[in-house]
Design a protein around this nucleic acid. Structure first.
Lengths: 330, 330
DNA sequence: AGCCAAAATGTAATCGATTTCAATTGCTAC
DNA sequence: GTAGCAATTGAAATCGATTACATTTTGGCT
């Protein structure tokens, strides 16, 4: 079994308290500190974090609960969160819920048992709505999705603006029959839909938004059917990377291409969106900044719990590529 | 502050030992168990995992140390590991090293301090070589990459075979001047290179393999230069998804396309490989199975530490797509 | 009813660290 | 030389659970 603090104390000829202080940040004479460090290294001493956490009553741990770890958006965010966390001397527990409210509940319970310092969370719409701000002993920062305003700290994209940017761009390019695909489990989908509708209305246009399960398969099926309908749209917007992927696959399977048969645009600047054809027009999210900001918000709230609830809203960036070049008839 | 076991005991009118047993798996009468459960729910009791781990001396935690969480291969593997872990009642700590030996050392140290039950690890070549099997108190299962044979449990792809399959396929399609890009930080790169060379030699061909940093940027730069050389290869193999991405970008930037100007093939069936042009020919790795198997190996070794060291070698699957259709001159 | 083994419950030790509080040491100043 | 004070060090309590061991209760059997 590995060495304990008692062994180090014995080896260095001091008390356990001195060892704790020498290895930590207590007041210890230079001579003793050196003796202790030497003994610790000699014995290969590793402090037991469970014991430390139990006694000190802070875990230096944050939970990061994301809805889909395979989504590059969340892996990028989690990289940022981890970088910031380790820089602040904290650890991260990464949890993946698959958009499943049961898993969300399970992981939140786990976070309580771990006595985490705080949680960064991208909840499903149901959970976001249900979540009471004071239900937990730790602060929660929402990312990507937010509940009712003022409920908890959050850092999100300006979803309405981003959707509007896409619509404006398509309209400017001459498209008039614009369809939209939106995820039906997140508040994000709803907000992007709202921006979509508002922008179309501003131009006196009526678009058709469809809410579907947030998977590429669902999107592919829906779009395949959509393309076969009488009134095929001349442009399509997908509200996240997975839906965009499904839409693209449906196009390819139908032997259609962008922008020739149909303009295609969406959210998330995933690696492949720059590779296919002449590129897909997308809204790029400031992924790293989202993660870093979430961690910063969490740290500052831990520092001062009295702060009032804040929402940070970040703007996306429209990347215009070939899939939305001017409408053929224009 | 949240309720402790003592509070539950008081509320239920029993001793703390009884609470522990009732909530755990001790012998308790049905009546008491119910009373305890009620009291626990009433108080919103959450056991403190730090205290439990300290006393019980097992953490039910495994560490998963991967070299790049943005690589879809590792996110898929980590999904599998987490699924299997939670099914076995264990938690996962996910760590990301960026192929950086210092970070590897840091995280291994963290694993010791966490007193994890075991670790699943994709080490850099340097660390794999240095790692002593008995250096840690916990078992280690290597994934994707392995050190010297018999050093630790491992689950890996049959890299030589997979590289050979690619070369055989290209040769059969009529290609003769085959270049290869291999990562220079992992044993995987070296093995795939060995299979590459061996397969070419078997046909009396001499290929050129280049070892580079495992990033898309490095691959793009190298391939861009390569394409400008006098003796341009007629086919290119990339030993992982990132390198393949870089190679593809270099082709696109040079205004070339596959297979017309150059055949392109590689490892990892990433989402975009099926989308670009007529698709890229790749070796698909059984990603989920790799993760699940690694977790199973770890669990069985924890169950019986006396087991002899095992390596599980899984075969990849060649997915033939448009990027390697027959050589124009054939 | 009486006895014994088995089952249920309680008491107290324990895990390995940090932290409180007390004791000691070393200086400075008079 | 010693009082006073700050800086070090040590002894022991403590964090919140599990578990070894002791004790009580239960139930079966004669």
């Amino acid at each position: 079994m590995s060495a304990k603090i008692k062994d180090v104390a014995a080896a260095a000829g001091v008390s356990v308290a001195t060892v704790s202080r020498a290895l930590g940040s207590g007041p210890v004479s230079a001579a003793l500190r050196q003796r202790v460090e030497e003994a610790a290294k000699q014995l290969g001493y590793r402090p037991n974090l469970s014991a430390r956490r139990l006694r000190s009553q802070h875990t230096q741990t944050v939970g990061l609960i994301v809805s889909d770890i395979r989504n590059p958006f969340f892996t990028a965010v989690s990289r940022a969160v981890e970088d910031a966390a380790y820089q602040a001397g904290m650890r991260v527990i990464l949890c993946n819920t698959d958009e499943n409210p049961d898993k969300e509940a399970m992981y939140l319970r786990l976070m309580e048992e771990e006595r985490v310092s705080g949680v960064i969370f991208s909840p499903t719409r149901d959970t976001a709505r249900r979540l009471r701000p004071d239900a937990y002993d730790f602060p929660v920062v929402m990312i990507d999705r937010a509940g009712p305003a003022g409920q908890a700290d959050a850092v999100v994209l300006d979803n309405r603006l981003a959707a509007r940017q896409l619509v404006e761009h398509l309209v400017a390019q001459g498209y008039r029959h614009i369809g939209g695909l939106f995820g039906n489990t997140s508040s994000t989908g709803a907000e992007r839909h709202a921006g979509f509708e508002a922008a179309l209305a501003a131009h006196g246009l009526a678009g058709e938004g469809r809410f579907i399960a947030p998977t590429a398969e669902a999107a592919e099926a829906v779009v395949t059917q959509w393309l076969a309908e009488e009134q095929r749209p001349d442009a399509l917007i997908a509200s996240n990377g997975l839906l965009l992927l499904g839409a693209l696959r449906a196009l390819q399977r139908a032997g259609l291409s962008s922008p020739h048969d149909l303009a295609l645009a969406g959210f998330d600047n995933e690696v492949w969106t720059g590779l296919v054809g002449n590129g897909l027009t997308v809204i790029e999210q400031p992924v790293y900044e989202i993660g870093r900001t979430a961690m910063e918000m969490l740290l500052s709230r831990l520092d001062d719990p009295g702060l009032s609830i804040r929402s940070v809203v970040l703007a996306g960036r429209l990347l215009v590529r070939g899939s939305t070049s001017p409408h053929p008839s224009a």
